[in-house]
């Protein structure tokens, strides 16, 4: 019998988790598969235009965890928040006749616009690179597939490195290798950083449970990020009703120009 712990608050979880663990006797855990549950306090985040970044806390619990493995810290949790996916084009400048201009470019398929990662420790010490590449966890391991055929593998690596560096630099990609902390033997809390320039749309919270370097469980939850406020209303208007928006811009210009000439008229 598996007891699912699906709740948002830490306090009731603490009470429930202890009896849950008590039902799994030592040594028998290897026959029972471990489970992973996560919860967020909301499925939607509203962000005002003065948003300067925040932390998103996600609670989770391991079920059927092996006491022995827990005691020696063999369980690792990685939680990520992936933004909506889109194509991304990386361009490189070169000096041409003394002027710096974009010469080469590479477009990557469907990469997350934002990516925030929290883990119990350095993810490269949790698992080996090839298997991390396989599951695509971590900024250095997420798949970056160029569109079209590119024969020069050296330049692919350079463009991938540049992409990751730029995304980390502007804060859209973040990682916190101590962002997941166990609050009790089987309960953990993950703090994910939301960047100030977080894109709106459907984000995905993904949690991965590793046991002795093996991925054994995975969970995901959608999280909608909605921008609110007058600035977002303007952005929406500009994209959804471009003609009306353009007309309004011209109208403001006419009123301002005409108004000034009336206001400052001397005769």
């Amino acid at each position: 019998m598996r007891r699912l712990i699906r709740t948002l608050l830490l306090v009731p979880l603490l009470g429930l988790a202890a009896p849950a663990l008590a039902q799994v006797p030592m040594g028998e855990a290897s026959t029972v598969k471990e489970g992973l549950e996560i919860g967020t306090s909301t499925s939607e985040i509203a962000i005002a235009s003065d948003f300067r970044g925040a932390d998103l806390t996600i609670f989770g619990a391991l079920t059927n965890a092996d006491e022995l493995f827990l005691a020696i810290g063999q369980y690792d949790v990685v939680v990520t928040l992936e933004g909506p996916r889109d194509y991304a084009t990386v361009r490189r400048k070169e000096r041409v006749f003394g002027i710096w201009m974009n010469t080469e470019s590479m477009t990557f398929e469907q990469v997350p616009e934002s990516y925030s990662l929290a883990s119990t420790r350095q993810i490269d010490s949790i698992d080996e690179a090839p298997s991390l590449n396989n599951i695509g966890v971590g900024i250095a391991h997420m798949p970056l597939n160029p569109v079209g055929y590119i024969s020069d593998s050296g330049s692919i690596r350079e463009f991938r490195d540049a992409y990751r560096r730029l995304k980390l630099a502007n804060g859209l990609y973040q990682r916190d290798t101590s962002g997941v902390q166990f609050v009790s033997s089987s309960l953990f809390r993950a703090s994910l950083k939301l960047p100030a320039n977080i894109p709106d749309g459907i984000h995905m919270v993904r949690a991965y449970l590793f046991k002795g370097g093996q991925l054994i469980a995975q969970r995901e939850l959608p999280l909608r990020v909605v921008k609110t406020g007058i600035e977002q209303a303007i952005t929406d208007a500009a994209h959804e009703r471009p003609f009306a928006y353009g007309f309004l811009c011209v109208l403001i210009a006419v009123v301002t120009g005409w108004g000034a000439s009336l206001l400052f008229r001397k005769d």
Partner: peptide, 13 residues
């Protein structure tokens, strides 16, 4: 320039 790479999101280009 300090950074010779740049990223543009969206659309195939």
């Amino acid at each position: 320039p300090e950074e010779i790479y740049s990223v543009a999101v969206g659309g195939l280009s």
